[in-house]
Design a protein around this nucleic acid. Structure first.
Lengths: 231, 231
DNA sequence: CGCTGTGTTGAATGCCGTCAACGTCGGTGG
DNA sequence: CCACCGACGTTGACGGCATTCAACACAGCG
């Protein structure tokens, strides 16, 4: 059965395309559900497909030979991921795991050349995405080089809130399950330190939370901490 | 006066192009000398050109609001740099400074669309370059998250040696001037720590050096340190 | 010949990782 | 329904690695 174009019609990636174009792109794709914690692709596996996240959240993780894990980034709804083909790579540099239940569109690599040729705007958008990720990653290197752990955690939480925040009565909530361990793997620290820092913030009324949940009640205070300008 | 096509004919970037193609690409460019320590473009400035390094070495540096500097990477001969246009950016995310005397080719941004359209292989090569830089940068995040300072310094020196090494009688030498401070800014540490580590390595006969110079005499030992498998 | 940039080394401080113990939530199976 | 168990979270104590502070040495250059 053909996929309905309404799946992707609203996404910025495909802006400006007509119905026939959307149908053409979708005709090459396959949609699937992915349960939470299921792996979408594995680090170092042959990269034969690329993906677009329709709903849910995906965690991109690199594992070192020693077994340490580092979270490279979270993918949000509407973003491409696993686009090794666009970077001329033949294997995936990291694994992708569903952080929540997901709906994913998948194309075979050979579709990339066709999409890029027929819809240059889509290709350009993907390259802009890669460029943005490069900038973000370098920003992270700068943070890890110059900031203390508490500031880095503040920056990471703010990034999550901006990219995946959902307003609630209490404040802004990160709308997928996230553990202290996850935050530690994003900031290059340990779950112990993250727990200590979040506990301190909770006492000051900056964040709230609970099990696998983070709610930011005072984003401004967090910003001050991230910029090391705490009053 | 027109630029001679021999300037770029040997570069992997332009492989497979004919003489007329090379001339066409060069006709859009301008060549210039850049003295050591001169700035080629500035962080946050409007990105109106992109560059290719013909000879010399270029240091790409990000500066934080607090004044801390972090070296994002070194550019080697034959590489594009400052290709904000390919990532859809309107400003440069970092500054570029000549680490040694350089010869640089410069194109106005509008040449990018034309080159990409007429010579897709060149465009694809640039995107592969961006992809490689993304992978390298993420690799650096992993290192900073999981490794100790000495291992990170070893990794950084090995990277420099692989990318810009020159064989000499003593061993492999990094063929541009580099200070302890530079290495510190690549690894997120201080020049003091770098000095201590290099002094210790020198005593063990792993590296040699001198003022603004690093010579690796025992690359294998460095590799063992980088992988934390020191005997 | 002094000055500036670079490099070295010692001593002390402190951040944060490590080790350890315990508490709590939620799902699962009897 | 409830007991159990594993995953997640919290907190204290301790120690080590690397930064910070300080002082000095040396080279190149005007």
């Amino acid at each position: 059965m053909a996929l309905d174009r309404s799946l992707i019609a609203g996404l910025p990636t495909f802006q400006g395309l007509g119905d026939r174009d959307l149908d053409a792109i979708l005709s090459l794709a396959r949609a699937s559900h992915v349960a939470r914690d299921a792996e979408i692709f594995a680090q170092d596996a042959a990269a034969e497909q690329f993906h677009l996240l329709l709903s849910g959240h995906v965690r991109v993780v690199r594992t070192t030979p020693a077994g340490d894990q580092v979270i490279a980034r979270y993918i949000n709804e509407g973003e491409f991921f696993g686009i090794a083909v666009a970077m001329g790579r033949s294997t995936y540099p990291a694994s992708a795991v569903a952080a929540a239940d997901c709906v994913v569109l998948t194309w075979p690599n050979r579709a990339w050349a066709e999409i890029q040729a027929r819809f240059p705007a889509v290709g350009a958008g993907a390259y802009r995405t890669i460029g943005e990720r490069l900038q973000e990653t370098q920003e992270r290197v700068v943070e890890m080089s110059t900031q203390q752990v508490e500031q880095r955690i503040a920056s990471a939480v703010l990034r999550l809130v901006r990219q995946s925040g959902r307003k609630t009565g209490e404040g802004i909530e990160i709308d997928f399950p996230i553990t202290r361990q996850d935050i530690a793997e994003m900031t290059g620290t340990t779950l112990h330190t993250v727990s200590r820092v979040l506990s301190a913030w909770e006492e000051q009324g900056i964040v709230g939370g609970g099990r696998q949940k983070v709610v930011v009640t005072d984003p401004h205070a967090l910003l001050l901490i991230a910029e090391n300008r705490r009053p």
